[in-house]
Design a protein around this nucleic acid. Structure first.
Lengths: 237, 237
DNA sequence: TAATCGTGATGACACAGGTTAATTTACGTT
DNA sequence: AACGTAAATTAACCTGTGTCATCACGATTA
């Protein structure tokens, strides 16, 4: 998301607190009332639905993402939020967002746009779960994550660090962890990609995207200006 | 969605055209630029992703829904839109929505809220596809639709008209139409619900919701004020 | 050093749901 | 009334993924 100098300054001033979170930590629970939203600065976080012990991830967040901007209007979330890796987050009070909305209508538009992309990603995930088989689902997810991380300056298009383990992939793709293992082995043997918890290596990005029926259009990424919201927090690369 | 008298009047004035659409008609295609949004007044519509002939529904719309309000900010859609039954729709130019947003900030909030609920429904669908088996998926979908139609005054909680056929259910639930038939038969035999294209009859709403792990919280329906946006177009209830 | 625990790696087996194909029913059109 | 087409219904068979159980490995912790 590209911010003007003034917008960025004003936005940073709205941050009430910067926190470090430990990995695998529950951060928000469905139903609790919220008065602030979380901007992810470093690390990976997830949003998931847990009903009767059945867990389904509904989003994976990368640095630069607003994790729960939708809580601003909903007031109460319909899902839980957790860290996947250690993470650094900035908290922005809803009261500040309200003021920001009045002062900088253009920034508000950009924020709304980001929640709409969040929904577009939901839809791509629906397609993934509804119509792709196990190998295709993983291929789709890795391709999507690769593009999002490229846009955040955290992937060169072939290699990136990702804090996810096999059971995470299972909860993302609606599969069991035993089967995730089979799929990863297959992708390795086909020389499409190698997934290790700490590092993902894509050997053939194009074939992988093909296999996952992946087309990045729904991410609405302007490939000209790929600086993430948080890029000022890290050495821009 | 509850609108004040002034809001409703102003909103109706923003409508540029009311159209009747025939059933099973494609209305919008992914990627085409849009300058207006569609409010569904009567009938049922769907949004779906079609990639390489694989079709997955990502939303079903009931009267009172804004079908593509998100197009207002995205400008281009990531999915197609079609009618399921014959339908009446109102077109609202984005330019009018822009003006509306400035004149009536409260209405804008309400509209944003409705796009957030749209996303919350996406998430419930993700859970459905990722974690429920065939019978549970159908039970979940029918329970959800029942609640939404109740809120629109189009279901009494046990019976409602729905223009969906078995292949639609397949594209909603990520199954094949052959298997949909098996599931519907099972639900019939278990005396939970009877699905006919023209009429859905829920014999045991509570058991059906249980079976589908359905909890309506994510619909954010205020059971006190259940008038739909379009309710002024029809005799209420 | 041992003990514990989370993660990854495997195999054997079971079954939910897909595939294919055929038949029947419903419905709109001429 | 006759026709064509799409939907519903059904059966036989197959396969992708789940289930269950075990083992190996490395990282913590006692």
């Amino acid at each position: 998301m590209h911010l003007e100098v003034e917008e960025r300054a004003r936005f940073e001033a709205a941050i009430s607190e910067v926190k470090t979170l430990s990995p695998r930590q529950n951060v928000l629970t469905a139903g609790e009332p919220l008065d602030h939203s979380i901007l992810l600065i470093e690390g990976f976080m997830s949003r998931y639905i847990d009903r009767n012990g059945l867990r389904q991830l509904v989003a994976v967040h990368v640095p630069g993402d607003f994790v729960d901007l939708h809580a601003f209007s909903l007031e109460v979330l319909d899902h839980d939020v957790a860290t996947m890796t250690a993470a650094t987050v900035a908290l922005v009070p809803h009261s500040e967002l309200e003021i920001l909305a009045q002062e900088l209508p253009k920034l508000t538009l950009k924020l709304r746009f980001s929640t709409l992309i969040d929904a577009a990603i939901h839809r791509a995930w629906l397609f993934r779960l509804g119509r792709l088989n196990a190998v295709e689902r993983i291929a789709h997810f890795i391709s999507e994550t690769n593009v999002r991380l490229m846009s955040a300056g955290l992937s060169d298009g072939r290699r990136f660090a990702l804090g996810l383990i096999q059971p995470d992939l299972a909860e993302i793709c609606g599969l069991t962890n035993v089967h995730i293992y089979r799929v990863l082995r297959q992708l390795r043997e086909q020389k499409l990609c190698v997934f290790r918890s700490s590092l993902v290596e894509i050997l053939d990005p194009e074939k992988l995207a093909d296999q996952g029926h992946f087309d990045p259009a729904y991410l609405y990424i302007d490939l000209q200006s790929t600086d993430a919201l948080s890029s000022h927090q890290r050495p821009t690369k």
